[in-house]
Design a binder for these strands. Structure first.
Length: 1148
RNA sequence: AGUCCUGUAGCUCAGUUGGUUAGAGCACUACACUGAUAAUGUAGGGGUCCGCAGUUCAAAUCUGCGCAGGACUACCA
């Protein structure tokens, strides 16, 4: 007795999940899926490192499913796909978490707790959910190597980062500069965006604002502006921080904005003036009524000031025009006081002309740099560059400045009065709100000097320091940068070669980001992260960038020799020894690296720059650092070690400016290459109402619970097939349920059906194959569709479109395989001999199931593995291995028969129409009918339907099919213009042509069918319409019950004669008997004896269809009895008001 | 504020190069079927294809301007 196909009592996908996991573990299936592909072409995948200090959420399941699907697919395609897991361990979230759990703030670090202790806490804390992550990875079936992950805090990892930083340094791509950052003079510290986003930080404050007049210099550039202007000419610019006006070095205009030149008087001095401002804002400064006032009548001091609009200019025209320094206290060193373009300039408020102080505004700094405008910089007594305001928040005192600088650049006569003034009263303990602020004093001064056009109080939203409650200053702070702008063009070029899914993220979000690229600010003033490996002398003149531990220890030894250090903290380290033990002897984090003092060639002490680097550098360098490049491996060691660039990565779209960018930037700068060739960026997972999931709202879905409840397969299937991965997913558990029922339930039912009968018949799958061309039409049909499916699924996976692949599979399984193939073929599997036809049916169904398992395995790895093994366990001679080690199916084009697929479609449509007609007349399908009639449109259609005739007839229980040809003349036809064909030919005449066609009568239609053309007269123009220009279809057959859909029409003969009636009754009997068999718990193969109580309404039917009833119900005997004992028989209703007793007993 | 994504039935989503009856599943209603049965089929109701304007003989589809939701970046006169 050969093995049987396993039969199940029910489908519990959660249990399947667990069972299959055990098998994978025992068989080491994942390991084998990599090792068995050794020597084959590689497919390089990078795992973006998650941070293990947070719990994994449901949104992690989707990106990890995507990764897993592609990797499993490529494995099935024969590639060697190594997958190294990784952990992102540095960064602010970790530090904040630790601060919270220890109950400390940033200030306490180094005081209440040592840096060493703090970092030790971070190191421990960051891995606290590792086991949860591993558990989820395991349960969801994400295959990634977690035995040997890369961890960003490990010394080897950091060593590679240092190496890379040094490479950049050597290329001149790493430099020290400044950025404008939020800074709290009261606290003496910079603030991170995170700190600024604390609740309550942004507050409405009332400040003195000033619209200043910048006098236009009269020269060649401004000649066009001075045309017809006798008075002084000014640009108007508005600021909410008048204290920044002395630092003004440029004015920005919007290139597209329209500006107007307006003749008027200064409201404070009454002097005549011509001012320039944005057209849209003229009405904000000038009351339209005053346009009619006479200039002659105006007296200084009048409330109503006349004005007159003179000319209009675009921002672009104003570019390059020079103006005089507004407050000439300190001269800038370099080009300044010129109109530049700023893409961000709007006409929402102010004057549409923006005052630019590059030392106090991030945007200002950016546009000034682009335009080559110098910032206003002061040199202090240490020779360092500073903005006009010192770190306590006051204008620099002369004594704190470099004497030579003061002599050359500072106008002491005017500046002295203001030197030492705090820019906000809040910064000076001696001042209160009542005291005059610097803003007010400056405004007053400008008024007196005829330089202020409007001064007023204005309420605006301004950030405050969360610790001191005092306003924040935007202030230039030291920072290290990577000069990404130097490779901007190359990055854009390389980006075009990347296959982005969706494309718009690559061209739009990412592409636009690259276009507006600024240098990468690498500095972070924190504790737990990769230290910047740069040491500098105090004056900053000598600098060393360290690229390895070996180099560092060598430098330390030099320092010890020179006597600046006593002892090396890394004394035990042996250069060149890459063992784990050796690397455990060092710690490249703070505070240890801070304690290292190096020595310059001149014998000067060098200290480490205290910054840490951006954690995104950590993850962006992961392709190299995960292999300890170049210390233990090398990127150019040949194909065997080729792990760069990646063929594929996938993460959430929120990584666009994060990991995607840093990968790309480093790949470009270091190796002039893309870092990844294909990428899927997935969208967010929202709750079912479209809201963001959050713990606070309590709408977050726990992935563990979900997997426990449903199993991973339906979860993964749902996530992938419900919407394209890059669209946001509205996560609804009902959707998983639906997938479970609809897809997995149907597939399971199909398998169960197969297993049940295969086991009865002893089918094993080892039988000699019935050649496909010898199998019946319907078998070849489903095999044709199956091969089409293989093609579609393969190309979808190849195009990184798993959604399309999943949907195609689901459609095939539910619609074609289950609902059509199995349903129509059930009888072939029941009873009878094990004929060639039956064998063909088994083989066909088996092939479909096996192929579906292999096609679906990447998406639903658990159930498909079970299904595959259940099939193979019986059919395979060899030891059965996992579906994930199998080779992905190859489509056989010779099996695809589109004509066959088409005619099966006809069969399905005709059947459904007949069933609809039956329902309309309340004719049960069990009642056979004599005939249906189908008008034929052409010979091809005739041939096609002829071939599926029997299929249709048995499906709808009708005896014959008659074809109606045109000549019969009984058809009513319908004609429609074919817009697609006519449109390009006749264009504007379409409306009339359509009207002409629609009014054609039956005889007109007959004429065009006969002649193949018709001549029409459209507005005097002769138009010849051919058969291709119209669509003709049959609509009705008078006198018959007709259904019409598209080009198909079916008519049904509803007359029932005596024989048909009897057959119908026989079928009813079969149905009742089968039900009784089932209710009585008989086995499918049990033979029975039937006794039926006589009834005039049924006797003939039983006698005439005895053989039929016997065959269908496996009855050995059928007896009509005068009476059937009520206790042994069952009362059944055969037809309306027709009842009888049936007695079914098992044949002894 | 900028950039990008999304908007089609009550819900989740399809909808090819523009072509005239806008589809599927779920849900709802009715009916049927019953040796795959905690399934299945058939039919029905349900649409301002977010709005407005434009291009075109023809727009869910192309263009522009809005609206709503979301993401990222920024916080600026």
């Amino acid at each position: 007795m050969s093995a049987k196909f396993k039969e199940y009592k029910g489908l519990d996908l959660s249990q399947v999940n667990k069972d299959v996991l055990k098998e994978w573990e025992a068989d080491q299936t994942f390991e084998k899926s990599v090792t068995t592909r050794k020597g084959n072409p590689t497919f390089v995948f990078y795992e973006g490192p998650p941070s293990a200090n947070g719990m994994p959420g449901i949104h992690h399941v989707i990106s990890r499913s995507l990764k897993d699907i592609v990797c499993r697919y490529k494995t099935q395609q024969g590639f060697e796909v190594k997958r190294k897991a990784g952990w992102d361990t540095h960064g602010l979230p970790v530090e904040l978490g630790v601060e919270k759990s220890l109950g400390i703030t940033k200030e306490d670090i180094g005081k209440k707790i040592s840096v060493a202790e703090y970092n030790a806490a971070c190191r421990k804390d960051v891995m606290k959910f590792t086991d949860k992550w591993e558990d989820l990875t395991h349960k969801m079936g994400y295959w990634v190597d977690m035995e040997d992950p890369y961890i960003t805090y490990e010394n080897k990892y950091i060593e590679t980062l240092w190496y890379l930083l040094k490479e950049l340094y050597k290329k001149g791509l790493l430099y020290k500069g400044f950025t404008i950052q939020p800074y709290s003079p009261a606290a003496g510290t910079g603030l991170s965006t995170h700190e600024l986003n604390q609740p309550g930080c942004y507050r409405d404050v009332k400040d003195t604002t000033c619209t200043a007049q910048f006098k236009v210099v009269k020269d060649d550039k401004s000649e066009f502006l001075y045309q017809g202007v006798e008075e002084e000419l000014f640009f108007l610019a508005w600021t909410t921080t008048p204290w920044t006006l002395p630092s003004n070095t440029a004015l920005a205009v919007g290139p597209q904005v329209t500006y107007q030149k307006v003749k008027t008087f200064n409201p404070y001095t009454g002097k005549p003036a011509v001012v320039i401002l944005a057209k849209d804002l003229v009405s904000a400064y000038f009351n339209p009524k005053n346009a009619e006032l006479s200039f002659e009548d105006y007296q200084p001091g009048d409330k109503k000031i006349p004005f007159e609009i003179l000319e209009e200019y675009t921002g672009k025209e104003l570019e390059g025009v020079r103006y005089e320094q507004l407050i000439p206290w300190i001269k800038p060193d370099g080009d300044a006081f010129r109109v530049i373009l700023g893409d961000y300039v709007t006409t929402e408020d102010g004057t549409g002309i923006v005052h630019i102080a590059p030392t106090f505004g991030a945007d200002d700094d950016r546009v000034a740099k682009v335009a080559g405008i110098a910032p206003l910089i002061l040199i202090d007594k240490d020779g360092k560059q500073n903005p006009m305001v010192d770190k306590t928040g006051k204008y620099f005192l002369i004594k704190d400045l470099d004497a030579a600088f003061v002599k050359d650049f500072v106008n002491l006569d005017t500046y002295l009065e203001y030197a030492g003034r705090f820019v906000k009263n809040d910064y000076d303990e001696k001042l209160t709100d009542k005291d005059p602020s610097l803003d007010v004093d400056i405004a007053v001064m400008l008024k007196l000097e005829n330089k202020a056009f409007k001064v007023e109080k204005h309420t605006h939203n301004y950030p405050h320091c969360w610790r001191t409650d005092k306003p924040v200053l935007y202030y230039p702070l030291d920072s290290w940068f990577i000069k990404t702008t130097a490779v901007k063009d190359r990055m854009m070029e390389l980006n075009k070669t990347i296959n982005w899914k969706p494309e718009s993220t690559g061209t739009g979000r990412f592409g636009k980001w690259l276009e507006n690229l600024v240098d990468w600010n690498l500095s972070r003033s924190r504790y737990w992260g990769t230290p910047l490996p740069i040491w500098r002398t105090e004056d900053g003149k000598v600098e060393k960038c360290i690229g390895s531990v070996e180099e560092l220890t060598a430098e330390i030894n030099k320092a010890i020799e020179a006597g600046v250090m006593e002892k090396s903290p890394y004394g035990e380290f042996t250069p060149g020894d890459f063992s784990k033990e050796n690397y455990e002897k060092v710690d490249l984090h703070r505070p240890y690296v801070d304690d290292i003092v190096l020595v310059s060639d001149d014998g000067e002490k060098m200290f480490r720059e205290p910054d840490l680097i951006d954690v995104w550098f950590d993850s962006g360098a992961m392709p190299y650092a995960q292999m300890h490049y170049p210390f233990e491996t090398s990127c150019d060691a040949g194909a065997s070690q080729l792990v760069f660039p990646a063929d594929f990565i996938a993460e959430g779209v929120d990584q666009t400016r994060g990991w995607f960018f840093t990968l790309h930037a480093l790949g470009t700068m270091l190796f002039d290459s893309v870092a990844f060739k294909n990428i899927i960026s997935n969208g967010l997972v929202l709750d079912k109402n479209g809201n963001k999931m959050s713990k606070r709202l309590g709408n977050a879905v726990d992935p563990f619970e979900t997997i426990e409840k449903f199993g991973s397969d339906p979860l993964r299937w749902y996530m992938i097939t419900n919407a394209q991965p890059w669209d946001n997913l509205k996560f609804d558990q009902n959707g998983i349920d639906e997938v479970k029922r609809k897809f997995f339930g149907t597939l399971y039912n199909t398998y169960s059906f197969f297993a049940l009968y295969a086991n009865v018949d002893g089918f094993t799958g080892k039988e000699e194959m019935v050649p496909v061309e010898e199998r019946p039409e319907i078998d070849r049909w489903v095999i044709s569709l199956l091969n089409t499916l293989i093609k579609d699924v393969t190309s979808s996976f190849e195009a990184y479109e798993p959604t399309k692949a999943g949907r195609a599979i689901q459609n095939f399984v539910t619609e074609n395989l289950s609902n059509w193939y199995v349903r129509l073929n059930r009888k072939r599997f029941w009873g009878g001999d094990f004929s060639k036809d039956k064998l063909a049916a088994y083989q066909t169904l088996y092939t479909c199931l096996e192929t579906v398992a292999m096609l679906s395995a990447p998406i639903a790895p658990f159930y498909m593995d079970q299904l595959y093994k259940d099939l193979k366990m019986v059919s395979s001679e060899e030891e059965v291995e996992s579906v994930h080690l199998s080779k992905f199916p190859q489509a056989d084009d010779s099996m695809i028969d589109t004509a066959l697929e088409q005619r099966m479609l006809y069969a399905q449509d005709i059947s459904s129409m007949v069933l609809a007609l039956r329902r309309k007349e309340s004719l049960k399908v069990r009642q056979p009918l004599q005939k249906i009639m189908i008008p034929i449109l052409d010979t091809e259609f005739h041939d096609q339907v002829e071939k599926v005739k029997d299929l249709v007839l048995s499906e709808v229980n009708v005896k014959e099919m008659e074809f109606l040809t045109d000549t019969s003349g009984v058809l009513v036809k319908k004609i429609k213009p074919n817009f697609k064909a006519l449109g390009p030919k006749y264009g504007k005449m379409m409306k009339q042509i359509a009207a002409f066609v629609n009014q054609m009568q039956q005889e007109d239609i007959a004429a065009i069918e006969k002649d193949g053309k018709v001549n029409a007269d459209i507005d005097g123009q002769p138009v010849e319409l051919s058969l291709e220009d119209v669509e003709i279809m049959s609509e009705d057959i008078p006198g018959w019950l007709v259904a019409s859909e598209g080009r198909l029409t079916v008519a049904m003969d509803i007359h029932i004669n005596e024989e048909l009636k009897q057959e119908g009754i026989a079928r009813e009997f079969v149905n009742r008997i089968q039900n009784i068999r089932k209710d009585s718990g008989f086995d499918v193969t049990d033979k029975i004896v039937l006794k039926i109580q006589k009834n005039d309404a049924i006797n003939d039917a039983v006698i005439n269809f005895k053989d039929y009833i016997a065959a269908q119900t496996l009855a050995e005997e059928i007896n009509l009895a005068d009476s059937c004992n009520e206790t042994e028989g069952k009362l059944v209703e055969i037809d309306n008001n027709v009842e009888t007793y049936i007695c079914v007993s098992k044949k002894a």
